[in-house]
């Protein structure tokens, strides 16, 4: 048992990588001292802090199969995320975690995976994708459907354009809401793009994350495609302060996103009040 669960370990920022042209999303690569390292599962989160500014909950975007360093992809929306963006390699960062349930990687074994993400929503799923890539033989075929507002806003470009498409039994389908001169790929919103692709629900689990409005329509699209509620997993985000199920604000009904989530099946979601 951690003697003081709210006291973070101090890690070091190794790299700060802008993901988008506008710089509103950056990926921090962080190294923790050996004694503070933790094991985690894809989809789990950690509380990052800049001492003097505050904390915020960010999903771990690197896979547990690459444990030496952790990666966090952060969109700048407020005070703390802005401070995280200003960190430079070599600087200190507070980390505590891992929090949440993560994706049920054991249950997913042997199944086909349909990953549907929008914008920064790919971050938690990227952890899962790379986990599967590293243990390719344990999982069925994986299809990644990813969209962003513009080609510039697509995150993890190295992976989505180069490394993932080269992995056996991995397909990457990209779309943007609005193209530019260089974009030759599909243009359109993720949910309709998904319906066009019409993946079969047979033996497949769909995992989705993105802006709330996208999630809403992706869930509808999946239903239209014949996915059953228990075949659909989504990961949610609410305001959190403690991460340990004690501060009482990230609940949806009786479930806390920080300990019972952030991953919920559509079946669970339908039993929860629509207050998120």
């Amino acid at each position: 048992m951690n003697p003081a669960p709210l006291v973070p370990a101090v890690g070091e920022v190794v790299e700060v990588r802008p993901e988008t042209a506008s710089g509103d999303i950056k990926t921090l690569r962080v190294r923790l001292p050996e004694e503070d390292r933790f094991s985690f599962r894809p989809g789990q989160c950690a509380m990052l802090s800049v001492f003097g500014v505050g904390e915020c909950m960010i999903s771990i975007s690197s896979p547990p199969t690459r444990p030496e360093e952790l990666e966090f992809s952060v969109k700048r929306v407020g005070r703390v995320t802005a401070a995280l963006h200003e960190l430079e390699p070599g600087e200190c960062i507070g980390i505590r975690g891992p929090y949440g349930n993560g994706f049920p990687v054991e249950e997913l074994r042997g199944k086909g995976l349909l990953v549907v993400a929008g914008g920064i929503g790919l971050a938690p799923l990227r952890s899962l994708v790379n986990y599967v890539v590293d243990r390719r033989e344990e999982y069925g075929p994986m299809r990644i459907v990813y969209g962003a507002r513009t080609p510039q806003d697509l995150c993890f470009k190295e992976e989505i354009f180069r490394s993932w498409p080269g992995v056996p039994q991995v397909e990457v389908h990209l779309t943007v809401d609005q193209g530019d001169e260089e974009w030759t790929g599909p243009v359109g919103l993720v949910p309709s793009f998904l319906e066009e692709l019409a993946p079969s629900p047979e033996g497949v689990v769909a995992l989705t994350c993105g802006p709330p409005i996208m999630i809403k329509f992706v869930l509808e699209a999946l239903q239209n495609l014949g996915f059953d509620d228990h075949q659909v997993l989504t990961t949610l985000e609410l305001k959190m302060q403690c991460g340990i199920g004690k501060c009482g604000r990230c609940n949806i009904g009786s479930r806390y996103v920080c300990v019972d989530g952030p991953v919920f099946s559509l079946k669970e979601l339908r039993q929860m009040p629509a207050e998120y």
């Binding site: 048992m1 951690n2 003697p3 669960p5 340990i244 199920g245 004690k246 300990v259």
Partner: peptide, 8 residues
């Protein structure tokens, strides 16, 4: 309550 008892 588990998994993170509030030790303070």
């Amino acid at each position: 309550s588990e998994p993170w008892p509030e030790t303070q």
